[in-house]
Write a protein that binds this DNA or RNA. Sequence first.
DNA 1: AATTAAACCCCCCCTTTGGGGGGTAAGTAC
DNA 2: GTACTTACCCCCCAAAGGGGGGGTTTAATT
Lengths: 203, 203
Amino acid sequence: MISVAIIDDHKILTEGLVNLIDESGIATVIGVAHSATDCRLSLGFWKPDVLLLDVGLPDVSGVDFCKEVKAQFPKINVLALTTHNEYAIVRQMLDNGASGYLVKNAMADEVLAGIEAVAAGRTFLCHEIDLLMKRPSSKNIWLSPRERELLRLISEGLTNGEIAEQIFLSPETIKGYRKNLLLKLGAKNTAVLVKMAVEQKLI
Amino acid sequence: MISVAIIDDHKILTEGLVNLIDESGIATVIGVAHSATDCRLSLGFWKPDVLLLDVGLPDVSGVDFCKEVKAQFPKINVLALTTHNEYAIVRQMLDNGASGYLVKNAMADEVLAGIEAVAAGRTFLCHEIDLLMKRPSSKNIWLSPRERELLRLISEGLTNGEIAEQIFLSPETIKGYRKNLLLKLGAKNTAVLVKMAVEQKLI
DNA sequence: AATTAAACCCCCCCTTTGGGGGGTAAGTAC
DNA sequence: GTACTTACCCCCCAAAGGGGGGGTTTAATT
């Protein structure tokens, strides 16, 4: 029997999930938390095989929390369960050690299949995310850490000069990054750049 | 007994909701749809007292769908149930005829209280949204239709000249709107303006 | 009926920033 | 060895944005 812990702030959803999993016969829910803080207190005690993790937690980002969990309990297999279907989020979760990724409108059987797969040490992506990750790479934008930092500063409204001051570079270098970001994202100008950054959760 | 229809693409959530409502004794679920298209086909037949409506539907915006439903079936009381906690979304839903608004991490009893209230013709906001709507109005930004249109065009990367051409105004007028938007949203420049627009769902 | 508020529209001047076009070069990961 | 990241530099001009100044129409409040 696979032991599962759930962390999600949507109480109605977790209730449904507990039912679904407990009645499946393949797994059993040994704990539910509604925030990362709650979870931290109990996780070491629960020691679940699989952790169903929402990305939109109220207190910390699920992306960061995944990293934290994997660092502390490498044996726990994290299965992301979220509404986000953006490449950047999936990619970050997987990079941070998640074993699988489900979108919340997935079918119930995909949840069970995902739990089984990650418990067995395999990776699992639900159908929608599998398609997403296999798209032509031109649509799946990935930025270097430095580029993400620049994009964040640009989105906050800093000018090239202000950014240069803040990260100790020449304004000309910042300009270079800016050009590159526009090119990479295919954005016409800063407005589109920022829109894409927020919409695609690049920052 | 209050009759309730649910429209939400998160299948696990709807299952939980059906249980919750049916077991409450105050209401009964007479139909579930996973998209607006599905719902349109059945709504006239179901004729529910209350429609639990998700805003993030896969096919159309819940905001638009609410308007559509209220136009066709004014007697159905729409209760929004969604993850969005942005002022602009709540405001639009209420303007489009919704009787209540719940965020998805609300407690189960708030869902039932909401159903009871809107079925009785009252309006209902869950605690979190009630607080949100009562914030000092400086934090709850509301734009005129024209301003929203301008903001949309700016976010799409059009220059003042291009916008002027498209909506048959002088570029100077566009400039005026731009200034006003920056002032109204307290944004330093276009980058911040666009970021706020996307994050606060103003467009 | 008069006032007010808000949305809506237009014009001037001026400075800073953004963005298009070229480059170069070190470090490191595959 | 070659591809990627990070880092830096030049010129040029169109656009954004800060500061003024006008004005109309429409709806609500007094």
